[in-house]
Amino acid sequence: MRYWRAMSTDAFLARFGAPGASQPDPVAAAQSAMRNKLPKRFYETATVLERDGLFHVALDGKTARTPARNPLAVGSRPVAEALAAEWQAQAERVDPAHMPLTRLVNSALDGVADQHLAVRAEIVRYAGSDALCYRASEPEALVARQEEVWEPIRQHVETLIGARFTLTQGVIFAEQPAGTLEAFAGHVDAIPAPLALAGAHNVMTLTGSALVMLALADGHLDADAAWNAAHLDEDYQIGIWGQDEEAAERRVIRRGEFDAAVLLLKHG
């Protein structure tokens, strides 16, 4: 069975962080963050202010800043309002672990803006070994479920890009045609940088599928359908063996990161 290649928002920031910044190991960074005391909340209210054609997240009237000291300002009011809501929801201390959208927007503004070509190239590489192209050979119920849920997505993307993907069973690598990846790249190039592109990258890694990401971006799938398609194998196993409590908690966290990424993909 093929496992999803999920990347957290923090891992995304580690890969595409601020230009010139060191790239820390995400596990070590998380452990360090747990050892460090969270900063106290230093503001009363988080609001959205429109200035110079952008929507700024304002803390007590002053524009918030990213780790690289860029203004926390975006071109989309829905994104800015969601950012402000994250900041407003913080309690006595500011906990970045509960701010997936802020972390992703920070990575977009500080890193993706200058590295968008590398991000686009990685999305296309992902399509070269996409999870939807690797099918189970058994059991029959799983095979049928993959056919029911995944085939319409694959066929939609193929129609959209005008090219075909190669399918295989099991985990044996199947190289995709160069023309297919070129056609796919043309649609990836149309995703606006940096916000929508950052959202696209995280949707892709959290679902294990660049095809699911493109179908979501195109409007063929909504967020729930994309999430369910991505977790088809996992849900099949849960139906047989039940769900581990810690795994369930991790899935809730991933869903929060996924929803933040979808918001950027759709409104960034």
Rank of each mutant, 00 (worst) to 15 (best):
1 M>H: 11
2 R>F: 11
4 W>G: 09
5 R>S: 11
6 A>F: 13
7 M>A: 14
7 M>E: 15
10 D>Y: 08
10 D>V: 13
12 F>I: 07
15 R>L: 08
20 G>M: 02
20 G>T: 05
21 A>F: 03
22 S>Y: 00
24 P>H: 01
24 P>K: 01
30 A>I: 04
32 S>T: 12
33 A>P: 00
33 A>N: 09
36 N>K: 15
37 K>D: 14
38 L>Y: 04
39 P>C: 15
45 T>P: 02
47 T>K: 07
47 T>P: 02
53 G>S: 06
56 H>C: 15
56 H>K: 07
58 A>I: 03
58 A>C: 03
60 D>W: 01
62 K>D: 12
63 T>K: 00
64 A>E: 04
64 A>C: 00
66 T>P: 05
67 P>Y: 00
68 A>I: 02
69 R>K: 09
72 L>H: 00
74 V>M: 01
75 G>F: 04
77 R>F: 09
79 V>K: 01
83 L>V: 08
88 Q>H: 04
88 Q>P: 08
88 Q>W: 00
93 R>E: 11
93 R>P: 07
94 V>D: 03
97 A>Y: 03
99 M>N: 07
101 L>S: 06
102 T>R: 14
104 L>E: 06
106 N>Q: 12
108 A>Y: 02
109 L>K: 01
113 A>C: 08
114 D>K: 02
117 L>P: 03
117 L>Y: 08
125 R>Y: 14
126 Y>G: 12
127 A>M: 11
127 A>G: 15
128 G>L: 10
128 G>R: 09
131 A>H: 08
131 A>E: 06
132 L>N: 06
136 A>F: 13
136 A>I: 15
138 E>W: 15
141 A>I: 13
142 L>M: 03
143 V>L: 13
146 Q>C: 06
148 E>Y: 05
148 E>I: 01
149 V>P: 11
151 E>H: 11
151 E>K: 14
152 P>E: 11
155 Q>I: 10
156 H>C: 05
157 V>R: 04
159 T>M: 10
159 T>F: 07
161 I>F: 08
162 G>R: 00
164 R>D: 11
168 T>R: 01
169 Q>K: 13
170 G>V: 02
173 F>S: 12
175 E>Y: 12
175 E>L: 14
178 A>I: 13
180 T>G: 02
182 E>A: 09
182 E>M: 01
184 F>P: 02
186 G>I: 00
187 H>M: 12
188 V>K: 07
190 A>S: 11
192 P>C: 03
193 A>N: 05
197 L>I: 07
198 A>I: 00
200 A>L: 03
200 A>N: 05
213 M>F: 01
214 L>Q: 08
216 L>G: 10
216 L>W: 09
219 G>M: 09
228 N>I: 10
232 L>H: 08
234 E>F: 14
234 E>L: 15
234 E>D: 15
235 D>I: 10
237 Q>I: 09
239 G>K: 10
239 G>E: 10
240 I>G: 08
240 I>H: 11
240 I>M: 13
241 W>T: 13
242 G>V: 05
243 Q>P: 06
245 E>F: 09
249 E>I: 14
252 V>G: 12
254 R>S: 07
254 R>Y: 11
258 F>L: 13
261 A>S: 13
262 V>A: 10
262 V>Q: 03
262 V>M: 08
263 L>T: 15
268 G>D: 05
